[in-house]
Amino acid sequence: MDELCTMPFNLFVHLYVYEEIVNPSSAKVEQIRHTELLQAIWLSTGNIKKEDIHKFSITELDSLNLISMKTIKEQSDEREKRIAEQQKNNMLNWMGIKSNGK
């Protein structure tokens, strides 16, 4: 308690803001740490093609959808669009047609 009484007010305010607003033990911060660790592990293997590096962003690795600032509905819509596009490309590849229509 002595530390709290002798602490400069400015430092107290900064620590309070950090603890209450940033909240370093929150689920969102923990998820960011986890996804950054996953990203570092994947990218350090050397087995990732240059064109696939964008697939290893922290938002793509966020399995709990805590990092994104989008609503669940927006995330669901984007996911459905990505799945539909991938299925379309898979079908076109199976049929031997290029994705650009040629």
Score class of each variant (00 low, 15 high):
59 T>W: 05
4 L>S: 13
26 S>K: 09
13 V>W: 04
61 L>M: 13
74 E>K: 13
96 G>N: 08
100 N>V: 07
62 D>N: 07
88 K>V: 08
93 N>G: 09
21 I>P: 04
81 K>Y: 04
17 V>C: 10
76 S>G: 14
48 I>V: 13
86 Q>F: 10
98 K>Q: 11
12 F>W: 10
20 E>V: 14
26 S>M: 06
20 E>G: 03
8 P>L: 04
32 I>T: 10
92 L>F: 07
46 G>V: 06
97 I>Q: 00
1 M>F: 12
77 D>Q: 12
58 I>F: 06
74 E>I: 09
6 T>Y: 15
18 Y>W: 02
74 E>M: 06
21 I>L: 08
5 C>V: 11
6 T>A: 11
52 D>W: 03
53 I>M: 02
60 E>Q: 15
84 A>L: 03
71 T>N: 00
10 N>S: 15
67 I>H: 10
24 P>W: 09
59 T>K: 06
38 L>N: 02
32 I>W: 14
6 T>N: 08
85 E>K: 11
69 M>S: 12
85 E>P: 06
34 H>Y: 07
91 M>R: 10
59 T>G: 01
23 N>Q: 09
69 M>K: 09
12 F>G: 12
59 T>V: 07
1 M>H: 12
13 V>D: 04
53 I>T: 13
13 V>H: 12
89 N>A: 02
10 N>G: 10
96 G>A: 07
54 H>V: 03
50 K>E: 08
24 P>M: 09
48 I>F: 05
86 Q>S: 04
93 N>M: 03
75 Q>R: 08
88 K>P: 06
98 K>Y: 08
9 F>I: 15
79 R>H: 09
59 T>S: 00
29 V>G: 00
54 H>E: 13
31 Q>T: 10
98 K>N: 11
27 A>M: 03
85 E>Y: 09
19 E>T: 08
91 M>G: 01
7 M>R: 14
48 I>S: 04
73 K>F: 05
13 V>A: 07
35 T>R: 00
75 Q>K: 04
11 L>N: 02
39 Q>C: 00
53 I>Y: 07
90 N>M: 14
49 K>T: 04
27 A>C: 02
9 F>G: 15
13 V>S: 02
30 E>C: 10
67 I>W: 06
79 R>G: 06
78 E>P: 10
28 K>S: 09
52 D>H: 12
20 E>N: 14
17 V>Y: 04
67 I>E: 09
26 S>C: 08
26 S>R: 07
91 M>S: 03
60 E>T: 09
55 K>T: 01
24 P>I: 08
92 L>K: 02
24 P>G: 02
11 L>K: 08
67 I>G: 08
100 N>I: 01
33 R>H: 03
59 T>C: 03
65 N>S: 11
14 H>S: 11
70 K>H: 13
53 I>A: 11
7 M>W: 01
74 E>R: 11
96 G>E: 11
6 T>I: 14
39 Q>A: 01
38 L>H: 00
48 I>D: 07
32 I>F: 13
48 I>M: 01
50 K>N: 03
47 N>P: 01
89 N>Y: 13
68 S>Y: 05
32 I>V: 15
101 G>E: 13
91 M>N: 00
95 M>P: 00
90 N>Q: 14
82 R>T: 01
75 Q>E: 11
10 N>V: 15
36 E>N: 02
60 E>S: 12
77 D>G: 07
36 E>M: 00
12 F>C: 08
38 L>I: 01
45 T>H: 05
81 K>M: 10
85 E>D: 12
12 F>S: 14
31 Q>F: 06
101 G>L: 11
60 E>L: 06
